[in-house]
Simulated scan of single mutants.
Amino acid sequence: MFKKFAPLLLSVALIAPGLAAAQGKSEVKLGFAKCAHCLPMALTPEYSSNTKIEAINFNSGNDVLTALVSKSIDVAQVTYLHFITALDKGFDVVAISGQVNGGSEILTAKGVDLKADDWDALKKLIAIYKAQGKPFRVAASRGNAQDIHMRGELMLHGINPNKDVQFINIPNPSDHAAALQRGEVELICTVEPFASQIRMSGVGKHFSLPYNQAAGNLTNLIVTRSDVIKEKPQAVRDTVGAVVQLVDKLKSDRQAWVEVINKYTAMDANVANEALKNAYPDYFMHRKSAQAIAVMMKDLKYVANDVSAGVDKAMDYSFLSAVTGKPKTELGY
């Protein structure tokens, strides 16, 4: 009898450790936003063998941050702006990796006659609107990187974003094209792939890439909470490892990136490929620039406090160092 079932028992014995390992896997819920440089986060589960990563898509970075601080998710892809905003509000957030930068573009509506990067002409046009008693309307998604990129760029070129223009908040970037088409705004700073969609459809035209202000082209950060680090340190390390592998993959092979943009936005490959011209995979965490962003956000009255001194404490390079084998001084510190 035993001989009859011996092969089966042996098979079960061999499979059981694997089943046990699978059942014992740590799990991480990871949130990411709907934009060209955020969407590759959907691929992170493919790069983690020891931790089960559940990648969850949200409409915006604001929604992702809300989910993180309310403990609905464990790890979040947000922006440097969200990171500083969270510190200003006293939230428990810890940055653990970079991801992708870039993705911002300022565009004008069809009826606005401005040449690319002609800031003097923009200032004159805003003055004309003022003289006529009309507001010069500019739009972005409040709280997103593009919002702070444009505000900083306006201030840099002598345009007071709190007095000289009227900001319109359009929370979902997928609604930006329609706002331009309906003539609801004169200028907009949006995120890829929606920026490329706007240009390629003729709804608006390129004005500037807003990367001269303090934030430069910095966009995305991967953040978690201190309780997650305490309770799941190995899972956090595995997640950072997956992000690092993903970023390295994106640098050399963008086909999967194009496909994931198509999956989540239904935009075709031409728009996706165009969008990726304005995306820079980078897992470094740029500490000094983050501090400069914090100062700029205080100057713009975007946050109530200067939290630049707190940036150091809220950036944990240990996971990046462990995964890459590099000291933090080589990872953006």
Results as ranks from 00 to 15, higher is better:
Phe167Cys: 04
Met296Ala: 15
Tyr129Asn: 14
Gly90Thr: 02
Lys230Ile: 11
His206Arg: 11
Asn212Met: 09
Gln99His: 14
Gly111Glu: 15
Gly61Val: 03
Asp63Trp: 00
Ala195Lys: 10
Tyr211Asp: 13
Glu186Gln: 15
Ala279Asp: 09
Ser49Trp: 01
Arg287Gly: 08
Leu68Gly: 04
Phe2Trp: 14
Asn212Leu: 15
Gln213Val: 02
Ala145Asp: 15
Thr108Asp: 07
Gln99Asn: 11
Val93His: 09
Leu331Val: 02
Ala215Tyr: 04
Ile188Asp: 06
Asp147Ala: 03
Pro45His: 04
Thr85Asp: 14
Ser72Phe: 07
Leu87Arg: 02
Ala127Val: 10
Arg199Tyr: 01
Ser318Asn: 05
Ile188Arg: 09
Ser318Arg: 12
Asn212Ala: 13
Val311Tyr: 03
Gln197Lys: 11
Val93Leu: 07
Val185Gly: 09
Leu300Phe: 06
Ala140Ser: 15
Ala67Asp: 09
Ser70Lys: 14
Gln99Pro: 00
Val69Asn: 04
Phe83Asp: 13
Gln77Thr: 00
Ser252Trp: 04
Gly158Asn: 08
Ala20Glu: 10
Pro210Val: 01
Phe58Ser: 11
Val311Ala: 02
Val236Ile: 11
Leu221Gln: 08
Pro161Met: 07
Leu180Trp: 03
Met155Phe: 04
Met155Pro: 00
Ser308Cys: 12
Gln99Asp: 12
Trp257Pro: 00
Met315Val: 08
Asn273Met: 04
Ser289Lys: 12
Asn50His: 09
Lys123Thr: 08
Val191Asp: 11
His149Ile: 05
His206Gly: 01
Ser208Gly: 01
Tyr47Ser: 04
Gly310Leu: 12
Ser318Phe: 03
